[in-house]
Amino acid sequence: MTDVDIQVRVNGIARRASVPPRLILADFLRVNCGLTGTHLGCEHGVCGACSVLLDGEAVRACLIFAVQADGAEITTVEGLAEPDGELSVVQAAFRDHHGLQCGFCTPGFVVSVTAFLEENPKPTDDEIRDALSGNLCRCTGYQGIINAVRAAAEALAESGGSASRDATAKETE
């Protein structure tokens, strides 16, 4: 098995690596980059814990090989907060509305919701439930999560802001 050279940007930082083709993106992020916020639950695409943004779109990091991400821009949960640690609007809403208990599923939820609100800033409750269908949580019973998403959408509408920091940066450039 021949290693392959890749170059990616992870949370704004350029990285080069030589990786075995079967290395999944989630392991690349956790092991090679030391970013353990991306969690692995089912490892076959069902639970959503591993969700990251790939060129702005939410994807399963367990269903992508690191080699396939060559040239891409990746945002993990570590890249959502401000550099000074201030939580993003979505993260703060999850904290404020009891959108988490044990926190295992949370990175996948906040990353997915960030991408979702970017595309659909004023979702209906049905659309919120639909968007959350790809993430499993064994603790909260989902009500707090749904409330958090609704609150995040309202907060973003009020502030005129954007769910993802990258997108805000791009707009002001």
Binding site: G45, G48, E57, V59, R60, A131, S133, G134
Partner: peptide
């Protein structure tokens, strides 16, 4: 299209 999997599946 929206009936296929979830948004994270459809993006790939």
């Amino acid at each position: 299209t929206p009936l296929i999997g979830h948004l994270q599946i459809r993006s790939r």
